[in-house]
Design a protein around this nucleic acid. Structure first.
Length: 994
RNA sequence: GGGUGAUUAGCUCAGUGGUAGAGCGCUUCGUUCACAUCGAAGAUGUCGGGAGUUCGAAUCUCUCAUCACCCACCA
């Protein structure tokens, strides 16, 4: 709604506008939805279906459901440039994505690395930090003994805060606390704080992981690191670099090996060599043997009996086994640290030793889509070196080149960007932009093995599989060969470096054709097959060099981040790019400042060295009536389409606009929407009234040429007409000022109170006696004025309520163009406000209000016309009354005005600026009620006056306050005193009556 | 633990140094002439508490309380 208001407003003001519509491919969410649908229909799963068919399936799903967002926008009246609708996976954006990936790779800004990532075991993909939701969960903390190597002993001394020794004990172990016992299998060390005197004698020694087959228990070193908190737990921390982010950092610092224990689905690894073998290898590494990251990763340190278990099942088994072996730290059953639900003192009483298991609230990471516990996992991923490209994005906002509104969001933006982590851009999904990287076998490393041509597909060498053949190649040339090509690749399109690499292969492979195959195994197979055929047939055309493509896709935000340039045709230098880039404004929710805004900023600067937009307006989040964030699982969704069905799009839009105060969330309520639906009805009826009074009867007066600069050419003389023309100019200025400042609520409120409060409540009423005039020039003038005023209302309201205003615009005359294309007025209050009319009508309105108020309080029948007596009235008042007599008489139900020297018995007094009137109510008047009424008004006035006088008699106020404030205060007190005097004399007269 | 914001009428919220506002709801009255999805009139506030700055504070400062959200996180 806000976007549409801005775009319509600018369009009507004559700007060359583009509102770029489109959708992203929502990688994880869409793939998940498709898989769910397939499961519901009991179809074969993704893996059984195969990648190509699955992706086809996803495209179908997207075609069926992807239009929902667009349809919602259309129902809401969004005036996007629909012919330019784009999708992140369409041809053009995909080209942009490929080019950016390759360029950034060549600049060294994209790299592949082994990192600890948040791994979603359900979707079997890495997810970003931002997609992880931390939820407080009931957990346990176990305390276990890690025996010292060789059962060495030491004296453990525990002191309290004052340094008094509270415990001295000979120990042959170091005590460790953990919430994740199953990860003990991958421990690389135990760390203590350097200042921790309890463990100082142990540093540098080895201890034993108390789990697994006894004959193959691993020894790990005790090291120091700043990370352990001596006051927490035992003060000693096990370091599992592959399964915990803090431990990862410690392991990096200390060169501790990071052993991966789990597979992609969160089960304990079942691959690799038998445990005994790998444990031995690990032991050698711990003793100082060199090993590469790959070699370490290949080791499976899960004991055979735990292999293949779910991680939570493995945890239970590990706990049970250690406890059974007597290596759990024991305590008394009445230890207050013990978890309540976990353990109870057994029947042996409080002295009975029980394992120390503390019940703890832990913050458990969950996937925000999958809702399963996230596992920190050491994997190969692609990263953008965000730190290197973030600079301009920070600087742009700091320097004001890009403005973020409301301002407080800039702080959030800075905080995140200044502490930015490498951006993991690979996702283990099929739906998305597949990473344009092909891998080939590293022939050089295979050396002498290649000399043996006599291979057959049936008998590839067994050891090939274990050889490092992962040297990666990334070439844009390959990309152009076709995404799914399982065939020869066009050599002309292949990158130069790749061809060099190929030429450097041992003969005869330097003459091989490049073919794309499924994966590494298929590559080995294809190579063997080719070599065998070559050897047998001496046919060089059989030689192939197989490559396979990275199976991962890019993070959706990688392509969304290129939206500003990508949708305008980049990398081609299109006219649209020239004309509309950099764009003007992005309106979005705070929840994607990091995901999207920051990424667009970084990427646009990195790729085209320009800002993507000059303003970011962070809109509020729409919550339900109770302030809860809407969510499907809570079932508190207000579907915009339902609301539109019920109240109309205009009402929904106007509600959203009027509640869009900057920086606060809004609670959407049906009552509020209903109120603005009524507003539309009100406008409709006002136009109907005009129509009934002949405003649109004569087509000759109609013109779409709205006078926008100066007082219009109607020769209007009627005060009410002059007044409403001026008011119209005022509201035009208010609306423009509000929209220019993105104060949508102010603009909506200004229009609401003008249309309802001024036009409908007053001007329409004023027009009734004018339309009833016998003077045809008065009628004609009023028709013209009303037609013009209502036209202005339609124009000014159009950005907010496009449907009803367009409809009314169409039915009230033959227009040259749609209201959507009408010219926005530039009416100036300075040109159009008639001071005299303004002052007079303000006075007339307050007089009518006073009379109505008195009548209501005195319970005068609504339809009864009464004479009005004029006690005193200054020249301004006389002129005003004379000019608007018909209006006053009708609206205040006054029969006639006549001068009087005194008020008769039974008359109530009406005091207004510059005059006193009396309303004779015959015997109907209740003297007591009248007295009470006057006294109440007087009391309020006296309070105001004394307050104001208090200020005016304070010399400091006169000295310090600005001149105009002092003058204003003086005028205010004078007018209030004047009114108070009138009320006092009315009270005096009342007293005489008694 | 760190950060950000909020606290104003019964409800939802504007108002950021100069006499406290809107919509909804509520009370009373009203169906001839645009509109009952309406009209007229009306009631309702220690602007969360306290202290300070200022001639003057809902507004600026400090402090306390309560609430919300974000980030991190205790092996």
């Amino acid at each position: 709604t806000l976007q549409d208001i801005l775009i319509r407003w600018h369009r009507m003001r004559g700007f060359d506008t583009l509102w770029q519509p489109g959708t992203d491919h929502a990688g994880i969410a869409l793939q998940m939805a498709v898989e769910k649908q397939m499961a519901e229909r009991q179809e074969p799963d993704r893996k059984a279906l195969g990648r190509d068919k699955f992706v086809d399936r996803a495209w179908h799903y997207k075609a069926e459901t992807g239009s929902a967002i667009i349809n919602q926008l259309k129902r809401l009246g969004a005036s996007c440039d629909w012919s330019r609708e784009r999708f992140t996976m369409d041809e053009g954006l995909s080209q942009a994505v490929l080019k950016v990936f390759v360029d950034l790779y060549n600049e060294g800004l994209i790299y592949r690395g082994k990192r600890l990532v948040n791994w979603d075991p359900r979707f079997e993909t890495a997810i970003s930090d931002l997609e992880v939701e931390n939820i407080e969960t009931n957990g346990h903390m176990w305390h276990f003994k890690y025996p010292l190597a060789g059962r060495e002993t030491y004296t453990y001394v525990e002191k309290d805060e004052d340094g008094n020794v509270v415990l001295t004990e000979e120990r042959d172990y170091i005590s460790i606390a953990t919430t994740r016992p199953e990860t003990m299998l991958g421990d690389g060390a135990v760390a203590v704080h350097p200042s921790d005197t309890r463990y100082a004698p142990l540093v540098g020694k080895m201890c034993e992981i108390p789990v697994g087959p006894k004959e193959h228990r691993r020894l790990i070193p005790i090291i120091t690191d700043e990370y352990p908190d001596p006051d927490f737990g035992s003060g000693a921390v096990k370091i599992t670099g592959a399964h915990d982010f803090n431990d990862y950092a410690v392991a990096e610092r200390g060169g501790i090996p990071k052993y991966r224990l789990m597979g992609t689905s969160g089960h304990m690894r079942a691959d690799g060599a038998p445990y005994a073998e790998d444990a031995l290898a690990a032991q050698k590494i711990a003793a100082g043997a060199a090993a590469t990251e790959e070699e370490i990763d290949a080791l499976n340190l899960v004991p055979d009996e735990y292999r293949g278990l779910d991680r939570f099942e493995a945890r239970k088994r590990v706990v049970a086994d250690i406890t059974a072996e007597g290596l759990a730290v024991m305590t008394r059953a009445d230890d207050p640290r013990l978890g309540k639900p976990a353990l109870k003192p057994d029947e042996n009483g409080a002295d009975a030793p029980v394992p120390l298991v503390e019940a703890k609230l832990i913050m458990q990471p969950y996937g925000d889509r999958s809702k399963v516990v996230i596992e920190p996992m050491l994997t190969d991923q692609w990263f953008v070196d965000a730190e290197k490209i973030v600079g301009p994005a920070i600087e742009a906002v700091r320097s004001g080149e890009v403005t973020i509104l409301p301002e407080q969001n800039a702080k959030v933006y800075f905080h995140w960007l200044e502490n930015i982590e490498p951006w993991c851009i690979s996702r283990q999904l099929w739906w998305g932009h597949r990473i344009p990287v092909w891998y080939g076998l590293n022939m050089a490393m295979m050396g002498d093995k290649l000399a043996r041509y006599g291979l057959t597909p049936e008998s590839p060498p067994e050891d090939w599989d274990g050889i490092d053949i992962g040297a990666e190649l990334a070439f844009d040339g390959l990309v152009q060969a076709g995404e799914h090509a399982q065939s020869a690749i066009d050599l002309d399109a292949v990158g130069e470096k790749f061809l060099d690499d190929l030429a450097a292969l041992p003969a005869p492979l330097n003459h091989a054709r490049i073919v794309e195959v499924e994966d590494k195994h298929a590559a080995i197979y294809a190579l063997a097959e080719g070599l065998a055929a070559y050897a047998a047939e001496d046919d060089p055309t059989k030689l192939v060099y197989p490559v396979w493509r990275d199976p991962d896709v890019l993070d959706t935000w990688f392509s969304s981040g290129l939206w500003p340039i990508g949708t305008l045709g980049w990398p081609d230098q299109t006219p649209e790019l020239e004309r509309y880039f950099p764009t003007s404004i992005l309106i979005t929710g705070f929840d994607i400042i990091f995901f999207w805004v920051a990424r667009m900023m970084m990427m646009q600067y990195a790729v085209v060295e320009q800002r993507p937009f000059d303003t970011v307006y962070v809109h509020a989040l729409v919550r339900d009536e109770k302030g809860k964030k809407m969510s499907k699982s809570l079932g508190n969704i207000l579907d915009p389409l339902d609301l539109i069905d019920e109240y109309g799009a205009d009402a929904v839009r106007f509600t959203l606009a009027s509640m869009a105060a900057m920086g606060r969330d809004l609670k959407l309520s049906r009552d509020r929407i209903a109120g603005y639906r009524n507003f539309g009805t009100k406008l409709w009826n006002a136009v109907r009234f005009a129509e009934m009074n002949g405003v649109y009867a004569d087509p000759a007066w109609r013109t779409d040429v709205i006078p926008t600069q100066n007082r219009r050419d109607t020769d209007a003389v009627q005060t009410a007409n002059l007044w409403i023309i001026g008011e119209t100019a005022k509201v035009r200025e208010e609306v423009d000022a509000a929209l220019a400042a993105y104060r949508f609520d102010d603009a909506a409120k200004a229009l609401y109170s003008f249309v309802w409060g001024k036009v409908c409540d007053w001007y329409v009423e004023f027009s009734k006696p004018l339309f009833a005039s016998e003077d045809p020039t008065v009628v004609a003038e009023t028709r013209e004025t009303m037609g013009w005023v209502l036209d202005q209302c339609l124009i000014l309201l159009h950005p907010f309520m496009p449907f009803i205003t367009e409809e009314l615009w169409g039915v009230t005359g033959t227009r040259e163009k749609l209201l959507a294309h009408a010219d926005w007025p530039t009416l100036q209050a300075a040109d159009l406000v008639d001071e005299t009319a303004d002052r007079e009508m303000t006075w007339v309105i307050s007089l009518i209000e006073e009379i109505r108020s008195v009548r209501a309080q005195m319970h005068v029948p609504v339809g009864l016309y009464l004479p009005l007596l004029q006690l005193d009235l200054d020249a301004h008042g006389q002129a005003a009354y004379a000019r608007s007599e018909a209006l006053i008489n009708r609206l205040a139900r006054i029969e006639s005005l006549s001068p009087a020297d005194a008020l008769p018995k039974g008359a109530v007094t009406i005091a207004v600026e510059g005059g006193t009137f009396g309303l004779p109510l015959a015997d109907a008047i209740d003297v007591g009620a009248e007295k009470a009424r006057l006294e109440k008004s007087l009391g309020k006035l006296d309070k105001d006056i004394s307050g104001l006088n208090g200020r005016l008699t304070n010399p400091k106020f006169i000295d310090s306050a600005p001149e105009d404030v002092v003058v204003e205060t003086r005028e205010l007190v004078t007018s209030k005193q004047d009114e108070a005097a009138r009320l006092k004399s009315a009270l005096d007269r009342l007293a005489e009556l008694e």
